[in-house]
């Protein structure tokens, strides 16, 4: 088969696949993401208000609220509940800080059978590693810009 002919065939096939492939249930997914994502943030707000009411400074209370959400997400992942919620919540359980916690706990938990160092210690950064790398580098660039231009 000639290369151009094969390319043509691929193009025709991808159009055929696009016709047959089921579309994501957008309304359901967006509703789920909005509801669960909103609910997690509202819980975060409640925790934030609570930590302020017991005397923490605003920034510290925010950090404490985040840490609490992370703790809850870690436990729910351990219990095997987080992924069941995520089935309906989609980005609603990925985008909040709890999704970051889940991305650390899920591989750590699952790879424990390959040992505490190479299993848990290494695999927990499978997704968190890239997040931290990009976060640190981009924040450092912002700091550098501030240093140079202020």
């Amino acid at each position: 088969m000639k290369a151009s002919e094969h390319e043509m065939q691929k193009k025709i096939y991808s159009q055929m696949v696009a016709r047959i492939k089921p579309k994501p249930p957008l309304v359901r997914n967006v509703t789920g993401a909005f509801f669960f994502g909103g609910a997690i943030c509202t819980l975060g707000q409640a925790l934030w208000n609570f930590y302020i009411s017991v005397g923490l400074a605003k920034d510290d209370a925010s950090a404490a609220a985040a840490a609490t959400l992370i703790f809850v997400a870690a436990i729910l992942t351990g219990l095997g509940v987080y992924d069941s919620i995520a089935k309906y919540a989609g980005a609603g359980t990925i985008v909040p800080i709890t999704g970051f916690a889940n991305s650390i706990v899920a591989p750590a938990l699952e790879y424990r059978r390959e040992g505490m160092v190479f299993g848990v210690g290494q695999r927990m950064f499978t997704i968190a590693g890239p997040v931290l790398a990009y976060g640190f580098v981009s924040a450092w660039i912002v700091g550098l810009m501030t240093y140079l231009f202020e």
Binding site: T77, Y82, D83, A106
Partner: peptide, 15 residues
């Protein structure tokens, strides 16, 4: 876990 994600990862599987 070999081909995609750990089973407890909160991902939505496409249709």
């Amino acid at each position: 876990r070999q081909y995609r994600y750990p089973t407890e990862m909160g991902v939505q599987r496409p249709l």
